[in-house]
């Protein structure tokens, strides 16, 4: 505790790095998955293929993935972000596609009957109705990304994992505690915050 009080600025910087890396990866993964998921919602074979590839990527152990990227992109933040995007695709693509598919056919028909174009139906009917499921996917993806970021400190990406690794290397438990507990607190609070968003969206739709 006293170590934390003397070095809170160090923890704050690591936390800030952790949040920025995670957010960058999550944004890239979200944009990619939105595009893939929209196509996959309408094409069964593309859906199956996309999920097979994303499922394969998801099964690769985190540290192995980061290591396998070293010969390609070397150490650092790019490496970590590629790995995190790869790990988030499965859940995000699946939820975008399922969310769009769950929109009742009558609703889409009604929108078409009102003279909406396909793009308008997507933007004003399908995506808004799919939002609770998409947010549910974002929540799982966010937690995954935060978790991967902890490990990514080992390939010099920065973040809270740095404190853990320095603590282990220097046999300095307070550093380990600070890094690990801050990472847990970050993951749990992001999970709770996004689940609150999800609940309020569902209530608004009900």
């Amino acid at each position: 505790m006293s170590w934390f009080l003397r070095n809170w600025d160090q923890v704050a910087i690591a936390l800030w790095e952790h949040v920025t890396i995670s957010l960058t990866a999550l944004s890239i993964a979200f944009v990619l998955s939105l595009a893939i998921g929209i196509v996959a919602a309408r094409n069964e074979r593309f859906y199956a293929a996309a999920l097979a590839v994303a499922g394969f990527l998801y099964t690769i152990p985190t540290l192995a993935f980061l290591a396998l990227l070293i010969p390609v992109v070397g150490l650092g933040r790019t490496n970590a972000i590629i790995a995190m995007v790869a790990f988030s695709l499965l859940i995000l693509i699946r939820n975008v596609a399922i969310g769009i598919r769950n929109v009742p056919a009558e609703v889409v028909d009604a929108a078409r009957g009102m003279g909406m174009s396909a793009a308008q139906i997507l933007a004003r009917v399908e995506l808004p109705l799919a939002l609770p499921i998409i947010v549910a996917g974002l929540r799982v993806a966010a937690v995954t990304v935060i978790s991967v970021t902890v490990v990514a400190a080992y390939v010099n990406a920065g973040g809270l994992g740095t404190l853990i690794f320095n603590g282990i290397a220097g046999d300095h438990p307070p550093k380990i505690w600070a890094g690990a507990l801050a990472a847990c607190a970050l993951a749990v609070s992001v999970d709770l915050a996004l689940s609150a968003v999800e609940r309020s969206l569902r209530r608004a739709r009900a």
Binding site: V151, P173, A187
Partner: peptide, 18 residues
């Protein structure tokens, strides 16, 4: 279990060590 699921693996391993 849901809270347990959100905890980063490496953080759990690291917390066990001290």
């Amino acid at each position: 279990a849901n809270i347990g699921r959100t905890l980063p693996s490496l953080a759990v391993l690291a917390l066990v060590m001290p």
